[in-house]
């Protein structure tokens, strides 16, 4: 029996319309525009609207683009893994070892640094790592080194360190939420059935926390690939990433179609890696649920 739209469906559609139209107009539309743009070419100031794959061919073959794209993925990958590994014990501690009424306070403590200006945090890492920075001053002062260390700043390591710092709360929170959801009697049951503390962790806690870990991996990986400020500030020439390249094409290099192509490629690669991560993680955790 064909039922016409009932009252509730109508109300739902009416409510979702404004935010949906907004997202269609300012997100879906523009993303589509970027896609169209990426098939055009630009010669100095004139844009040639004949659709072509030339930009893609160039982006995928030119060693400069390939190097920077590869570096972006590699840096983000390392940042993601480092951040999640560093974050897990913290989330575990707050979930399992902090009194319930203190948990909010701990989460608050962890998120406060995140609410300080992003630009200033990155700049402060420059101060930490710089030639006359905190670390060098401290080490020189202690007499451990004679001359300031120069490998701290303006390279890929500095980018990894700074991004790991910036995204730490993003990794901690989803893992914490997943750990909180674990029924504590499951752990007691595992111990009761003869598991040790270590095997209980490996066979019960970790698999159950997996959705949170996957969420953390994605939440850190996706935005870091597209990060602009950190590589520009602390990366030096060897630490530049894809976002810097995209920005350059829209700005100084004045080749917007190439910038659009790089943006589309970056999105595509990120999406593939994200989906692969989810699939692999699902496989590893035995396809649970």
């Amino acid at each position: 029996m064909g039922v016409p739209l009932d009252q509730d469906t109508k109300r739902g559609l009416t409510l979702i319309a404004p935010p949906l139209v907004y997202a269609l107009a300012l997100l879906a539309g523009p993303l589509l525009a970027v896609l169209v743009f990426s098939f055009w070419t630009q010669d100095y100031l004139t844009i040639d609207r004949t659709p072509t794959l030339a930009n893609y061919a160039e982006a995928l073959t030119d060693p400069i683009y390939r190097t920077i794209m590869g570096r972006s993925i590699a840096i983000s990958g390392v940042v993601t893994i480092v951040t999640v590994i560093l974050a897990f014990p913290v989330a575990y501690y707050v979930s399992f070892h902090v009194r319930p009424d203190r948990k909010s306070l701990w989460l608050f403590l962890i998120t406060i640094p995140f609410w300080t200006s992003y630009l200033l945090r990155i700049f402060l890492w420059k101060v930490m790592l710089g030639f006359n920075g905190v670390i060098n001053s401290a080490l020189t002062g202690l007499g451990l080194i004679d001359a300031p260390l120069t490998f701290l700043l303006y390279n890929a390591n500095a980018v990894v360190l700074t991004l790991s710092h910036a995204f730490a709360p993003f990794a901690i929170l989803p893992i914490f939420v997943a750990l909180e959801k674990i029924d504590r009697s499951l752990l007691e049951a595992a111990r009761d059935l003869g598991e040790t503390a270590v095997t209980t962790f490996l066979r019960v806690t970790l698999p159950l926390a997996m959705p949170g870990v996957i969420a953390a991996l994605l939440i850190v990986f996706i935005p870091t690939v597209g990060d602009y400020v950190t590589p520009a500030e602390v990366g030096g020439p060897g630490g530049l990433m894809i976002a810097n390249l995209i920005q350059a094409h829209f700005g100084g290099l004045n080749n917007a179609p190439m910038g659009a192509t790089l943006a589309i490629l970056a999105m595509g690669i990120v999406t593939i890696i994200a989906l692969a991560t989810v699939l692999i993680a699902r496989k590893l955790s035995g396809g649970a649920r």
Partner: peptide
């Protein structure tokens, strides 16, 4: 409420949460 294509609509609206900000900036 339940309505057709709800998951897709919510997915699009929530997308900026996982989209690198530079992409949003560039596309606009």
């Amino acid at each position: 409420y339940r309505f057709p294509a709800k998951a897709a609509a919510m997915g699009l609206i929530m997308l900026p949460l996982v989209l690198p900000e530079i992409i949003v900036g560039v596309s606009l």
